[in-house]
Design a protein around this nucleic acid. Structure first.
Length: 478
DNA sequence: ATGTTC
């Protein structure tokens, strides 16, 4: 497909509807990001145009500046569908790792308190949070019944077991529990995969980081979020592990079978979709919400073990209490009201970024907007942004979710071959503990865009504002 | 992302 777009302002580009597209597509990019998209023959923009062909889409189909090629929908994609206009739900618009997301914790410690115990703390974290492909916990015994409750109740179930505080739940998107979860729509195989994995990190770009606040850009909003310069923070990035993956796989298969029945023409099989108001659509949404709750519970349980690790590293109770700043998802589909319409917003590698006065914000954040957590790569930095009115107007209340790759996994491995990344990072003051050398090579800092560039576009386009930058000191990887 | 090709 030929990609032609018009530049609307410095960072906003529009692909006018053509061919089978039912809506325009809009993406946000700098000159450099645009050059990168061109170097890939606009493959991810073609995916965005494909999304715009789906029934019931509410204009426009959107992509954030960290857009890259994904399964069906591009990663960094946002698409809203109207259930009353034949709108669809698509597992490819959510992603395989359902409710993958990030949680930021704030400690009472300062950077200098951490330095003497950095290596020791890194070891304690690595011990207590299993990482890697297929990682399991042996110390948390779930059975099928208790797992069904996790799927219904999300992070709240974990807190009620004694692994966390009620206050934690007040600082999670949707209270750590997505409505409409239907554990009965989760397959036996998904249950089996989920049983031993609650409280594990996984692999790939998932991580656990200890950081410090290197720079504050907006002191007023930072204060509302409880962040200050030199403060030690923890960032957890993980999702619904094998359970969510299995849910996605099961329902994609089902959707492909029923697509002809609903007359949905798919320009790409990976866009497999069913009407929101159909038995299959509702089944997926019920299973997706259940997997989302597993992911919220996973980040909550990991938080418990992170607190234990800080305690074991000898930090005082007031310092290892680790307050939850926010926990938010970047892979899901949610019913929200935009422009007076109730729509199903798919965010795949895109973060909710509600502005001041929006619904579902903790009281302390209501006046300023929600925290938007944007991880970078393990060698540079991550950002905390705040949601804006601009995001509500332009992007269904959405923003970017990270840096986005510039190198494929294979190219990254080839490029860093022979180098000792663990030592390189140590020399830069970052303690890395990783299960697999291969993951480290695939996740090398240079495999990612500079997240500062992505954030600059987001801010320039009015989709979020910088609040603080976080510098890693300990990284745990799969 | 993923018991990394059920």
């Amino acid at each position: 497909m030929n990609v032609s777009f018009v530049q609307e302002d410095r960072y906003t580009f529009r692909i006018p509807r053509k061919g089978k597209m039912r809506a325009d597509a809009v993406f946000f990019a700098s000159k450099r990001i645009l050059a990168h998209l061109e170097s890939e023959n606009y493959a991810s923009l073609v995916q965005l145009m494909n999304v715009a062909t789906l029934p019931g889409i509410v204009e426009p189909a959107l992509a954030m500046p960290d857009i890259h090629w994904g399964y069906g929908f591009p990663i960094g994609g946002v698409a809203a569908f109207d259930p009353e206009a034949g709108g669809v739900v698509s597992p490819g618009g959510v992603g395989f790792d359902i409710n993958c997301g990030v949680r930021l914790l704030a400690s009472g410690l300062e950077r200098r308190d951490l330095e003497p115990r950095k290596a020791w703390l890194a070891d304690r974290l690595y011990e207590r949070v299993p990482a890697g492909v297929g990682s399991k916990r042996r110390d948390v015994k779930l059975n099928r019944r208790s797992l069904a409750r996790v799927l219904e109740e999300g992070a709240g179930w974990v807190v009620r077991q004694g692994w966390g505080e009620a206050d934690d739940l007040d600082h999670i998107e949707s209270g750590g529990r997505l409505a409409g979860a239907d554990p009965g729509r989760v397959s036996e195989r998904a249950y089996e995969r989920g049983l031993p994995q609650l409280g594990t990190l996984g692999s790939g770009n998932h991580f656990l980081e200890v950081q410090y606040v290197e720079q504050v850009y907006d002191p007023e909003v930072a204060a509302a979020f409880g962040l200050r310069e030199d403060q030690v923070t923890v960032l957890i990035h993980t999702g619904s592990r094998g359970l969510g993956h299995q849910v996605c796989q099961d329902h994609v298969q089902k959707f492909l079978q029923v697509a002809p029945k609903y007359g949905i023409e798919l320009v790409d099989r990976q866009l497999a979709a069913a009407p929101i108001e159909s038995p299959e659509g509702r089944a997926y949404l019920g299973a997706m919400a259940a997997a989302a709750n597993y992911a919220f519970a996973n980040r909550q349980l990991i938080t418990h073990y992170v607190r234990e690790a800080f305690e074991a590293a000898g930090f005082a109770p007031r310092d290892h209490a680790l307050r939850v700043v926010y926990d938010l998802a970047h892979n899901n589909a949610k019913f929200e009201t935009h422009g007076g319409r109730r729509v199903l917003v798919h965010r795949k590698g895109a973060t909710r970024a509600f502005g001041p006065g929006a619904s579902d914000l903790p009281p302390a954040y209501a006046a300023v907007g929600q925290p938007v957590l944007v991880p970078g790569d393990m060698g540079r930095y991550s950002y905390v942004l705040v949601g804006t009115a601009g995001a509500m107007e332009k992007s269904f209340g959405s923003s970017c979710h990270g840096a986005g790759r510039v190198l494929s996994r294979a190219r990254s491995k080839k490029q860093v071959k022979g180098r000792d990344l663990v030592r390189e990072l140590a020399e830069a003051g970052i303690e890395l503990r990783a299960v697999s050398r291969r993951t480290v090579a695939e996740e090398a800092p240079e495999a990612y865009k500079d997240v500062a560039e992505v954030v600059q576009v987001v801010e320039g386009a009015g989709l979020g504002r910088r609040v603080a930058r976080l510098r890693p000191v300990i990284v745990v990887k799969g």
